[in-house]
Design a protein around this nucleic acid. Structure first.
Lengths: 139, 139
DNA sequence: GTCCCTGCAAACGTTTTGCACACAG
DNA sequence: CTGTGTGCAAAACGTTTGCAGGGAC
């Protein structure tokens, strides 16, 4: 697949310095960044980037399908370039600890597609971590 | 399984009128309520319930594993009693439209459990809905 | 030159918190 | 009676928006 920046240019996307920096931040090897982390990293490269632009750009990229928005248990949105190796999540419902895990992607049966064009699948396993299990033994 | 209120009493949970109403609201047949919806419904039954208490109670129930917190794409948290029929979600990355779908749950391989006690699995299929597909044909 | 993107700061909606009072145990 | 849960209102948090100026095409 072509690099992200190239794909964006081909979509007739106005390529500004800020947008390029944001896109390049996401194209890195990071796994799932919050909007604010993207903001900090982008600003480290190009100081004249505003928080608003980061949010706007992230939303556009998600709408284009070039980026996955994965809203995690912790309430804040996290973003993931959709080209990376797939991974899923295991989170403790009690303390919020989160681990990356590997598991097979579930398949969506053909009769459940509803005409949608599938892009990706996100899986979150809810669980109680070893430290939190003892506390729950009141049954 | 015993009713939710009974399970809570057995956990030495201080059972107040407000908490009972909140728990009963959730025990209903609803699928995924926001905190505010829980607040409205609880207040319809017992007017002297405050928003803060709803939030506190929901957080406690999630920590206990009696309730699943599922943060959807729309940013706000939604809550789901973990006893209901499982269903998954199909979300349009462009317009946010969300449908419930049925699909097999993915299995988490034994060597990926990390000592966690599994409670549930949440699956979100990211896609582009029929109305949003045409707009994206700029490649 | 035009239109879209940008930065700033203020607005927004949701969730959390501090405090004094009230009630379950 | 004691300790914990409650209501209220204000704060915190992440995100969005309105507006005037600036830069990509």
């Amino acid at each position: 697949m072509e690099p992200l920046v190239t794909r964006l240019r081909n979509r007739e996307w106005r390529l500004t310095a800020q947008r390029r920096v944001i896109a390049e931040t996401l194209a890195g090897e990071h796994v799932h960044l919050t909007a604010d982390e993207v903001y900090e990293r982008s600003r480290a490269v190009l100081p004249e980037v505003s928080r608003a632009t980061v949010y706007n750009t992230l939303n556009e990229l998600v709408g284009m399908g070039e980026l996955l928005e994965m809203t995690h248990t912790d309430g804040r949105k996290r973003y993931d370039p959709n080209v990376e190796e797939r991974h899923h999540h295991l989170v403790c419902v009690s303390c919020g600890r989160m681990l990356d895990v590997r598991a097979d992607d579930p398949r969506l049966p053909e009769d459940q597609h509803h005409g949608f064009e599938l892009l990706a699948v996100e899986v979150t396993f809810r669980a109680r971590c070893p430290e939190c299990v003892p506390a729950a033994s009141t049954s």
